[in-house]
Amino acid sequence: MHWSTATLMFVCIVTAIPLYIPSATAIIGRRELLVTIHVFSGILLPIPILIGVAGRQWGLQLRRDLQIINKWNSEDVSWFRSWGRDPLLRPGKFNAGQKANTSFIGGSILVMLITGIIMHWFSIFPLAWRTGATFVHDLLAFAILIVIIGHITYAIRYPATIRAITTGKVSRDWAQEHSPSWQEHPIEDREHQE
């Protein structure tokens, strides 16, 4: 789930560059092909997530994770105050930064999809909406890029999180140190939805 979404997002970003930057368009050309790839991967982008939550059995863990991500407590608010540095914090499976990242990207995918549809199938929308959608699409693209760079930077800074997302496992010690409130876990429960 994470990796198919990441791959599609990566394709969207890479194809967006020559569509947006005039000098890159001039060098690379093949605009039509790029548009097709960009639109295609953009429309597919929400699909892995939807499949991921839909399964009665296989969607169980992801639904459970999303529920944790949805609910914020006072702990999460204090996490943001100190950007995770407060030693008294006892985050659960996901800290507030990870929660915010997930929700932001989730909402952004929806908005990029809506504005992208207006830009591509423009003829049923008023001209002012097309201009508005283009503006929102561009602006949010920059925000998404910044957030994803942050997401990857923090992942690299904490290599155990990369192991967690690739293998679905974290060591008991690491979990106790970084996610002290994350308990009640028999081993098989810790498998991430990939």
Binding site: R64, I68, N70, K71, G92, K99, S103, F104, L110, E184
Partner: peptide, 19 residues
Amino acid sequence: LNRADVDDQLSKPIGRRII
């Protein structure tokens, strides 16, 4: 649900609100 979230009765659906 996770213990941390069940414990805290004040938890709010901020994730949904962000979206």
